[in-house]
């Protein structure tokens, strides 16, 4: 979860009931099927008071699926503005989280963050609290987890850790043989000085 502070009030307000509006901003329909899946008998999101509503004016949260395409952008902006404050955003799928495989496509604005940048630049709208659910498409369990995370039922599991593996000397010499004569390029790429 990132962006906007999740105020205690918001948590309290949506603790027992959360109505979501499903916004497909250019998805391949994989994520949409998974979103509908969480209302099916097995995951049954309705038991947590989640309801899918047809009008953005009724919604408390927007479920984004897919990257924001240029074609859909004006409608996405309208739907986004129509959802009354305080609102939540749940970005479902890799496409929505960061653009996915379309991240640098010519007809695509990008993931939800690019959309927020656009909204900030164009309308001065601050990004609302956002929950990211990566996966292509994410499992229904993951989506359910996100919905419960939004309402303070479960803790966020994600933690930040950066891990860099050191290359062994044999590996390096193998690489060196493979790329004979391109040491300088290799050194620049991995940022390590190669010694025999």
């Amino acid at each position: 979860m990132r962006g906007g502070s999740m105020e205690v009030d918001l948590l309290k307000l949506y603790r027992r009931s959360l109505w979501v509006f499903h916004l497909n901003s250019g998805s391949c329909n994989g994520c949409d099927i998974e979103v509908l899946n969480i209302f099916a008998p097995r995951p049954d999101a309705e038991r947590f008071g989640v309801k899918l509503v047809g009008s953005p004016r009724h919604a408390d949260a927007i479920v984004f699926t897919g990257p924001v395409t240029m074609e859909a952008l004006p409608r996405v902006v309208r739907a986004f503005n129509a959802v009354p404050n305080p609102k939540l955003v749940i970005a479902i799928g890799s496409c929505s989280c960061g653009g996915g495989i379309w991240y640098d496509s010519y007809s695509v604005l990008g993931g939800i963050n690019e959309f927020y940048k656009y909204m900030k630049r164009r309308y001065g709208v601050e990004p609302p609290p956002t929950i990211y659910v990566p996966g292509c498409p994410p499992k229904p369990e993951a989506i359910l987890y996100a919905v419960l995370l939004a309402r303070g039922f479960v803790e966020q599991k994600q933690y930040r850790s950066v891990y860099v593996e050191e290359l062994s000397t044999e590996m390096l010499s193998k690489l060196k043989k493979m790329l004979a004569g391109e040491e300088a390029v290799l050194e620049k790429a991995i940022g390590v000085e190669i010694v025999d």
Binding site: W19, P41, D60
Partner: peptide
């Protein structure tokens, strides 16, 4: 399905009235 708790509609309405 298991379904929402019985006071769910009441919760929904209370939430809406608070918005």
């Amino acid at each position: 399905r298991r379904g929402p708790p019985i006071p769910q509609t009441l919760y929904d309405i209370v939430k809406l009235l608070r918005k």
